[in-house]
Amino acid sequence: MNVPPPTAAPLTGPLTVTGTAVSLAGIHKSFGPHVALRGVSLDVRPGEFVALLGPSGCGKTTLLRALSGLDRIDAGTISIDGTDVSRVPVDKRDIGMVFQSYSLFPHLTAAQNVEFGLRMRKVDAARRAVRVQEALDMVGLGDRGGRYAHELSGGQQQRVALARALVTRPRVLLLDEPLSALDAKVRVKLREQIRRIQRDLGITTVFVTHDQEEALAVADRVAVMHDGVIEQIGTPEELYRRPVSPFVADFVGLSNVLEGVARGAEIEVCGRVLPVLGPPVEGDVSVYVRPEDVAFTLDSGGVDATVVASSFLGSLRRTSVRLADGTIVAVQHDASDRREPDEAVRLRFAGYPVVVRPR
């Protein structure tokens, strides 16, 4: 049965995009014996910015390619605006994509690169000119339309690629690690610009990255992927403060891993009792504690430790200490509190819930 693709936005008038719901249900994908996706389900709300976060090989890019139509799925359904597009070809899904590699045509100017999709849709020349200029203005390159790719910086080339993806007014924008080839300052600036444009347009966006800081900084929700499944999806705050598994606790943010003994909803670690996230457990466990939940104290009841090293990080400092059993613990604290190697210190643990893993 031929299923019509979602209706594309008209290519006339001011650039506005209506947020579109995206739903992936039970997506399976294998490459020979390798299973890349294991029944993944994900619902993206209209106008939402969702980041797919995880290590290399976790399946995040495969999921994005499945959504775009570049990879055909083995099982499951993909819906855009309530229409099943699982078997609709990539050029009929009304999706804009920006890749890690800029993929600009070197023989075309920035404006001609942006114009390309409109030409393929047979938009008349006058409208193309207006739409291209509007798209270039939107990404801050309104005066660079006549330049070729080699005359633009990496950040500018990626902004041209973004303008090219948006000029056709897609219902959904897909970003596949678009910032990883850029230097740190340009990366931060461009991610903020992408987020601003996404909010202004209200376009539903799915963003793939392995950079946790990037994902937490720009996304409404983050889906943490591991071994072909989504381990947890939630707001950046939910993922950081209430991870549902040791993998999420370890991958999102920095965690100290300590030995402890669990007794139901509580755990004893370094002589201190802390509450446990998740269901009650019993026995020997590994405990995940955030560096900012450990502090220096003068209290005689603190845990004795010795400073190993301290790193100045601008507004804060991170100091590594060694406990009596040799365990290294990171403490995040005020930058003005400088600690020297071999200095004897005492630690206290904040009473925040922690994630545990049986040993």
Rank of each mutant, 00 (worst) to 15 (best):
A25P: 08
G19S: 07
P6D: 08
S56M: 06
V40K: 06
V44F: 07
T12W: 01
T61F: 10
F49N: 06
L42I: 15
T7S: 07
L15Y: 10
V40F: 04
A36T: 05
L53F: 05
M1L: 09
E48Y: 06
H28V: 13
L37H: 01
A9D: 12
P46V: 15
N2F: 12
V50M: 06
V3P: 02
A51Q: 02
A21S: 03
P10E: 06
P6A: 05
T7C: 10
S30N: 09
R45T: 14
H28N: 13
G32P: 02
T16I: 12
V35W: 10
V22Q: 04
S23G: 05
A25V: 14
V35C: 09
T16P: 00
H28Q: 11
L42N: 01
C58L: 10
L53G: 04
R38Y: 07
L37N: 03
K60P: 03
L37E: 07
L53S: 06
K60L: 12
S41R: 14
S41D: 08
G39W: 12
P4E: 09
T7R: 15
A8M: 10
P4T: 15
T16V: 15
P5M: 04
H28C: 10
P46Q: 13
A36V: 03
L15A: 15
L52Q: 12
H34R: 15
S30F: 04
L37Y: 09
P46W: 08
H34Y: 15
T18C: 00
P33R: 03
R45P: 07
T20C: 00
K60V: 02
T18M: 03
V44D: 11
V44W: 01
G19D: 03
T18K: 12
L37D: 01
K60G: 00
S56T: 13
P4Y: 10
A25H: 08
G54H: 11
A8N: 09
L37S: 08
G54P: 04
E48S: 06
P6F: 12
T7M: 10
A36M: 09
M1V: 13
L42K: 03
S56P: 00
L24H: 01
N2E: 14
A8G: 15
G54L: 06
V22M: 01
P14T: 14
T20F: 00
I27M: 08
T61G: 11
P5I: 01
G57P: 03
F31E: 12
R45K: 15
A25K: 11
P6L: 02
G19T: 13
G54Y: 06
G57F: 02
D43C: 06
P4V: 05
A8R: 15
S41A: 10
A8P: 09
L52Y: 01
A21C: 08
P33H: 00
V17D: 04
T61I: 11
T12S: 12
A8F: 07
D43I: 11
A36C: 04
S30H: 00
G57M: 11
G26M: 02
V3Y: 09
P33V: 12
P5R: 07
G39Q: 09
T7D: 13
T12Y: 00
V17G: 04
G47D: 07
L37P: 06
H34K: 15
L52H: 01
L42T: 12
